[in-house]
Simulated assay, not measured.
Amino acid sequence: MMNAITRCVTKAAAGIALALSATTVVNASTQPVPPLNLDTDTITVSGLSSGGYMANQFHMAYSDWVKGAGIIAAGPYYCGQNDITTALSQCVNKMDSPVNLDTLSAKAKDWAQRGKIAPLENLKDSKVWLLHGTADTRVMSDVSDLLHTQYTMLVPETQVTYVNDKPFAHVFPTLDNGGSCTTSESPFIGACEYDAAGEMLNFMYDSLTAPDDTLSGNVYSFRQAELAGDNAKTLGELGFVYVPKNCEAGSDGSDGANASAGENTNGNACQVHVSFHGCNQYADAVDDAYVTGTGLNRWADDNSMVVIYPQTKKSMFMPLNPQGCWDWWGYTSEDYATRDGQQIQAVKSMIEGLSGKGIE
């Protein structure tokens, strides 16, 4: 029986994985994360593939807190339905039978009524940016179309944009960083002459400043379990955070970094964006390809924004996760897509810990 389960989950993970090659460790500062001056009243999230599913789950769980989501190549909330077979047969590169959005919506409504996710009416205040490339064969367009349909049932149509006419493969599109844009190859960061990071952030935030060619800040590492405890047991040892210089507590921003996006009721406090990598895109597998290569840091640096990059890890034991995917089908528990989910709780604790204060 165990061998059958192992074969099933391994096959499923391979079907949803980003098959990236292993390299070394992220080139992060050797210094501890400095005290940060953050505004955590609202945050935004993004992700690619399994990270896109996770960004959606985090958004739905905390739509009273998360006010923007940028999702590349993922499907509707609770598509996997706590079943790896369903996830593989309906939610990635094929749809053996139609996905019933009414069933998924009913589950979301039930969880909202029970307090397991935020009330769905909070979503009317969100902005959602979605992308699916026409050359993407890893996640079929029908799957991403369903995510768009689901969001437009919950979010005003003017607050949702769906980019689905670009000839991109299963990659995070950038202006000029990464490999081929039209083939799904390592590192699955594509030089597409298209700034997905800028497009999504400009949709979610008002009046961003165009970035320059220099970065004022640093990538820092932190021990995820120190902030998240047992909820981090399916995650990697280290997470990463990009910190612009003027987001360090006590900085006056005199280095010239623009603070327009972070200026709010908390003075010069910086905004928080959380970005989730895809399967096999965790740092132990791909070095800094995701942490430094998407273009998010470039925009964050000139707009007073800290970017948190939580990390998964692979596991060859139960819970089996050989490709280091985020849990969007239930390998941690049946609560994986709710506020009770281990990984969702872990990431929430990371944000709280890095900000130095709790979230009410």
Rank of each mutant, 00 (worst) to 15 (best):
Y282A: 02
S221A: 11
V155W: 08
T42P: 01
S50M: 11
T44K: 01
D340T: 08
Y53M: 14
P32H: 13
K313S: 02
T265I: 11
I84T: 12
S221F: 03
H273G: 12
Y77K: 06
A191W: 00
A69D: 11
A269Y: 03
S63T: 00
P98A: 01
D252C: 11
S254M: 06
R7V: 02
G293F: 02
K116T: 01
Q311H: 11
T209V: 12
H170R: 00
K166F: 00
T152D: 05
A14K: 15
M350F: 13
G353M: 09
A169P: 03
G52N: 11
N268T: 15
V92E: 05
E193N: 10
G70R: 11
C79N: 05
I43E: 13
P35K: 10
M316Y: 14
D340H: 03
V139R: 07
Y205H: 15
V243S: 06
T103D: 11
A17I: 14
M153H: 14
Y62F: 09
A74Q: 07
A300H: 01
L354G: 03
T338V: 01
V26K: 04
G229H: 15
M2Y: 03
D230M: 07
A135Y: 06
S216D: 13
N246S: 06
T183I: 09
C181S: 01
L130V: 05
T134R: 11
N82Q: 11
C192S: 00
G15D: 10
Y162R: 09
M140R: 06
Y162V: 07
A225F: 03
Q90C: 01
V307L: 08
A249E: 12
T10Y: 10
S304T: 05
G217D: 07
P32I: 07
D284T: 14
P322F: 13
L104F: 11
L18P: 00
N164H: 10
K116A: 10
F188L: 13
S126G: 04
D302W: 05
T158L: 04
K127M: 04
P322L: 10
